[in-house]
Amino acid sequence: MAPTPWRGWGASRMAAQHDLHHEEHAEKHPSPRRYIQIAVVLCVVTLIEFLIFYGNMDSATMTGIILMLSALKFILVVGYYMHLKFDNWRFSAFFFFPFIIMISIMVALMALFSNLTR
């Protein structure tokens, strides 16, 4: 019978699964052109953030807008540059599950240390 290679990462380097995986998603991969478009958006958003910083609004509004713009940049990088939008759902689950736990813990910690709850 044919050799039965051990199926660890070294074997998978050569294994067909990796190619399969890419063929499956190849047509869905964004093109370099799309990457450059994303980069332009990222730069424009950063510029807007910069301008808002020198604008004149109350700090709660400013905080809200900056948080939303940061989240937008975050989602663009994760979705396109890290391919999560096109990739297997398990990768998203692996990343976003702890991420959501972390955000919740951070919010809870900040509430616990704020004067509101003491």
Binding site: M1, A2, P3, T4, P5, W6, G8, G10
Partner: peptide
């Protein structure tokens, strides 16, 4: 079990 040549199984 089908006959398996032990030396064909490559463990790390």
């Amino acid at each position: 079990l089908p006959y398996v040549d032990e030396s064909s199984i490559h463990m790390p």
